[in-house]
Design a protein around this nucleic acid. Structure first.
Lengths: 238, 238
DNA sequence: GAGCATAATATTGGATCCAATAAAAACTTG
DNA sequence: CAAGTTTTTATTGGATCCAATATTATGCTC
């Protein structure tokens, strides 16, 4: 298959996210182009794009290197994502959901219910849930009808999954902490409820708390029990 | 002077922001490279960078065009900036200001006081204030020690000043609305106070309100009188 | 053997070619 | 003269060259 420009950037990105290119590894245009079987031109462009995404840093006259992302940076990225998705949820609530978006969110919620109905989650269940989770968030962002949110998140997209975070997001570990998922999923229900009822401030608040839950997970993955629960009754107060 | 890569992107950006290249204008690599006296390579890179910044859109097989930015988009960008700077203010408060940052902010506040002491603001006063304003915000963002905020704002940097916004930010108009500046400057004082006293939530709230004030300005520039004022006494309650 | 000078190498930035392809223009035919 | 077809042109993506320059290695001197 012929490698094309965007192919080069996606395959390089994948290599970084998969850990095939470890943090600190040095990359130069010519060796990389030979390795991928393309010329320097697309590699050049790819390096700049990945630098933009925060995955590479330029070492002047010495090529690029795969950035090592510290836990602090990941936390920072998650916090940023939190406020932005909070804004998205608020705006989605204030502007009103389209029929399609509401339907899509409802379907995803049900999908999550089904996954979590089983008490012992398998790894594939986990992956399934993650996909559903991502789609849920994407739809909320989309429903805000604010392209600037998208733009602001673009540099944030892959960072939390880069090398250093392998630990924080370790799959086996998350499996043991499945309780978190139930809590997160409940928050999804509440966000949905707030949005469809036009409760912008509430939607924003829950969404931010939702991001915060992830942070709590990164920081102290052992305290899943102490999570407080937003009572369903509260959501009825309009 | 020899044009270099970053020169090409900055000069193209300037041309767009100055209105020399109007919204909707089509750009192709070869004509642009000839006009700037460089080869296609740096232009190619510049186009991609400016596309990333949201200033150009790619028309497949027909080159690029200067994006026309709608008022809605600018509002969206300002809202995004608001929540991000709100987060920055909160984190700056929570993490504590360094000696240097505190000093810098204090100096800027005083500078603003001096500018606004004069009742009839000249256009150069206005420009001076704007510079001070930008530095104030930059320092707050810096003080948050969260690189993800920077990254998220990068695509947001120039958008609000692109073509369509010429109207919204019209200088003569702003001059007439100088009252807004006093209000904004007072908010700066409150943000400063909240940050140095470690009042994260308050700092965030005021910063978001501050962004909102800009929005109010874009939407209805005539209502400068109805602004409510945060009482100075409130900021003493710790 | 250490330190400095010099040479070799690696690496990027810019320029130019070539090929593929889509858009636009010209042309032909009914 | 309109509509479809062919030709021309514009435009980008990729490959390769050349030049400038910083880093690394080598070697020379003391």
């Amino acid at each position: 298959m012929k490698k094309t420009q965007s192919n080069v950037v996606t395959s390089l990105r994948q290599m970084i996210l998969d850990g095939e290119l470890k943090a600190g590894a040095r990359l130069a245009e010519i060796p990389t182009s030979e390795k991928l079987g393309v010329s320097r031109t697309p590699v050049r462009i790819a390096f700049r794009a990945l630098e933009q995404e925060g995955l590479l840093t330029k070492l002047p006259r010495r090529g690029y290197e795969v950035r090592s992302v510290s836990t602090e940076e990941i936390i920072g990225a998650v916090e940023v994502r939190g406020v932005l998705e909070g804004l998205a949820a608020r705006q989605a609530a204030e502007r009103g959901l389209s029929e399609d978006h509401q339907k899509a969110l409802a379907v995803l919620l049900e999908e999550g219910d089904r996954i979590l109905a089983v008490k012992e989650l398998s790894e594939s269940d986990l992956e399934h849930y993650q996909q559903m989770n991502k789609r849920f968030h994407d739809i909320v962002i989309e429903a805000a009808h604010n392209p600037a949110i998208h733009a602001a998140l673009s540099r944030n997209e892959h960072l939390p999954f880069a090398s250093a975070s392998a630990l924080a997001f370790d799959k086996a570990h998350m499996l043991r902490e499945a309780k978190r998922f139930e809590f997160a999923h409940m928050q999804h229900h509440h966000v949905y409820h707030a949005i469809v009822n036009g409760l912008g401030t509430r939607a924003e608040g829950i969404m931010r708390e939702h991001a915060n839950a992830t942070l709590g997970y990164i920081n102290s993955p052992r305290n899943a029990d102490q999570l407080t629960v937003i009572s369903e009754r509260d959501t009825q107060n309009t």
